[in-house]
Design a protein around this nucleic acid. Structure first.
Lengths: 196, 196
DNA sequence: TTTTCATGTTGACATTATAAACATTAATCG
DNA sequence: CGATTAATGTTTATAATGTCAACATGAAAA
């Protein structure tokens, strides 16, 4: 028999985040309320407030988890690839793959959480983009002074694509994988061939 | 003295949408609830249900208003310009301008309203993009078969830029206008110079 | 004018976020 | 080891919300 009535849960904060991520995977931002998540974890709603100052910050925590999951997915896709172009395209492709295969998580990841801690999440998708672009610069494929602009361009492109495709606002003219490849190659062109 | 106690409001649906847009402009998606908007219009919450089946659909209506405002802004910026490249860049620039100058409206415009009526809003930003890209095709600047891809590329780029910049996820390396110009020129390059 | 329909209102109820007070377990210190 | 204290959960209570049902009123149609 299992131990029951463990009055203390032991690890509530984690459990809540976990439950939240699970919900987010299925239902996106809905059902991320204090009460609902507390129920999932078999704990009274007020227990949540011992670990999060309010419901918003719990949501923010879940959002952060989702962002970290995205970053892990990207790193995994990167693997040991060494070719800079392939690395760069893989970053974009994996970002899009994650967004399209986990729309709920993705939308929660970029939820209007007022405080995206834009500093070091580690590993954050931002820093992954940035590092890859540093490599491009070191290889002489882009100007050093273009780093920030290229980061903005690349990230905007894939982020927008996921957002609009998930919302079914964009109707693709061809099957997904080819469409994504072409999008990425176009982006590569704009990044490596642009000169003021 | 003004006429008061006009038991019937006369134009509640419009007034609610208007109040919603005003709120959205200031606070984004928050405060778009049935009760709050009903109060703004000095009407009991239940009155709302004579015009919208539920709170979600009221939000959806406000979201649509926001999308139409965006489209109007773009058309105005377009003006009578005839040069195809300038037209195209203006579309992108005005989209970004609107998004950055009206972050609340923009976020509501693309709120997770499950049912973005992806058909004819008239005038929708989608159709504006599309028409401009048709012109590019007619001028021979892009392949006819590339129309859908170019639309996806262009819209993704500017939409992503607004989203990430509003969320302060992107830290620009230069003042906004120049950054936006460079982004657009890069996009133009990718659109007109790409061949499979 | 009288009937009817569209439009508002009040009251009730379930659900939510959160505050206050209380309970229990775990940790620390003599 | 036992007693005090700090963490962590629970119950109770309050205010706000979305929405249902029943009722009221004013404008349009008959």
């Amino acid at each position: 028999m299992k131990k029951k009535t463990k009055y203390h849960h032991g690890n509530l904060a984690d459990a809540l985040l976990r439950a939240g991520v699970k919900e987010a995977r299925v239902n996106g931002p809905k059902n991320l309320g204090v009460t609902h998540l507390a129920n999932q974890v078999h704990v009274s709603p007020m227990a949540v407030y011992r670990h999060f100052p309010n419901g918003e910050s719990l949501k923010a925590g879940i959002s952060q988890q989702a962002r970290e999951e995205l970053a892990r997915y990207m790193l995994k896709a990167l693997g040991q690839e060494t070719d800079v172009k392939k690395r760069f395209l893989t970053i974009g492709r994996s970002y899009i793959e994650f967004g399209l295969s986990e729309p709920g998580l993705f939308s929660v990841a970029f939820l209007d959480c007022d405080s995206l801690p834009n500093d070091e999440d580690d590993p954050s998708s931002r820093s992954i983009f940035h590092d890859a672009i540093l490599d491009l610069s070191n290889e002489g494929l882009i100007e050093h002074s273009d780093i920030e602009q290229v980061a903005a361009f690349a990230w905007s492109l894939v982020h927008g694509y996921v957002t609009l495709t998930s919302a079914e606002s964009l109707s693709p003219a061809m099957p997904k994988p080819e469409a994504v490849n072409e999008l990425l190659e176009r982006g590569w062109l704009a990044i490596t061939k642009f000169r003021k």
